[in-house]
Amino acid sequence: MTLLITVFAAVAATAVWYQKNDKGLMLGVLCWMFWGASLMWLVDAVFEYIELRAAYFTPEIGDMVNDAFLGLAVVALALVIWVVVLLIRDPKGVVRARLKRQ
């Protein structure tokens, strides 16, 4: 479930990055994070599949809910990291302009 949610987030981030084509939004940071994590969790999933075989595809409801909750938490963490990097790097100078005005 975590892998699935991260893959969906990676695809969505990449689609928005392509559509916006705006370096000022630093959407690349999000894409790298989600794709990197997706690839690593894919390896984790393959190893788990080798161990559990078909049982891998029929998880307990409790485990599934926990994994989904983890997936959402991971997406939230990645979004927070992206916003922090965006505000610190401030490629459009919005934060600097605001601070100067004050």
Partner: peptide, 20 residues
């Protein structure tokens, strides 16, 4: 730097999963 981005991104999110 593309490779570094992929690796750092994955490592940060996986570290969070391990903490979880």
């Amino acid at each position: 730097f593309w490779l570094a981005g992929l690796l750092w991104g994955g490592v940060i999110l996986l570290a969070f999963e391990h903490l979880w």
